[in-house]
Amino acid sequence: MDSLHLHLVSDATGETVTSVVRACMVQFEGIHANQHNWWLVRSQGQVERVIAGIEANPGIVLCTLVDVAVRGVLEEACRHMRVPFIPVLDPVMGALAGYLNAESHATPGRQYQMDAEYFARIDAMQFTLAHDDGQLMDHVEDADIVVVGVSRTSKTPTCMYLANRGMKCANYPLVPGVPLPKSLENVRTPLVVGLTKDPKSLSDIRRARLRFLNHDEESEYAQFEKVRDEVASARKLFTRHGWPVVDVTRRSIEEASATIMQLYGQHKAKQDGKA
Rank of each mutant, 00 (worst) to 15 (best):
I31M: 13
V73R: 11
T64Q: 03
A222K: 00
A106W: 05
C159H: 01
H32K: 12
L100W: 08
V26G: 00
N214M: 10
V47T: 13
R251N: 09
V192T: 15
A170I: 03
A52D: 09
N34V: 08
A222G: 01
V70P: 00
I51P: 08
Y112N: 12
V245P: 01
E185L: 11
R49H: 12
P199M: 08
M114W: 10
R240K: 13
T196D: 07
H105E: 13
V147M: 09
K200Q: 14
A232I: 09
L96V: 15
N57M: 06
V178N: 11
S10H: 03
P173R: 10
G98C: 10
G149T: 05
V192G: 06
V175Y: 03
S19T: 08
S19Y: 02
G72W: 04
K197D: 06
Q262G: 07
A102N: 04
C169I: 04
Q27D: 07
E254H: 06
I86C: 14
C24E: 04
M167G: 02
I253G: 05
V68W: 02
C159R: 02
T249G: 07
T64C: 03
E29L: 01
P173T: 12
L8W: 06
G194F: 01
Y221H: 05
A95Q: 08
Y221F: 10
V227N: 04
Q35K: 12
R240G: 11
A256V: 08
N34Y: 11
R228S: 11
V193S: 04
R165I: 00
I54W: 02
Q271C: 07
A12V: 00
A95Y: 05
R49Q: 14
A208N: 15
H241W: 10
S219L: 12
M160W: 06
Y172L: 11
D132S: 14
T158E: 00
G98K: 12
G149F: 01
G134N: 12
F212H: 14
V227G: 04
L6R: 03
D138T: 11
F28R: 09
T107G: 02
G14P: 05
S219T: 11
E117H: 08
M81F: 11
V245H: 04
Q27A: 09
T156S: 15
T64P: 01
S252Y: 05
G194V: 05
R79Y: 00
Y161W: 11
V187G: 00
F212R: 15
R165C: 08
V66T: 10
K270C: 04
P173G: 11
K168N: 06
L195C: 02
D2R: 12
D90F: 03
V41T: 10
D67Y: 00
F28Y: 10
K268Q: 09
G194W: 01
A208K: 15
S252Q: 08
T16C: 02
D144S: 11
T64I: 00
T189S: 12
V148P: 03
G109S: 07
S154I: 09
P176D: 05
K197Q: 13
G265A: 14
L89R: 12
Q35M: 13
V88D: 10
L180E: 05
Q271T: 03
T196V: 15
D90A: 09
D204V: 11
A275M: 03
V88N: 10
V17I: 14
I145V: 15
H215W: 08
I205F: 01
I31Q: 10
F127K: 01
V50H: 02
V47M: 06
A120T: 07
R250M: 11
L4H: 05
D216T: 04
E254K: 09
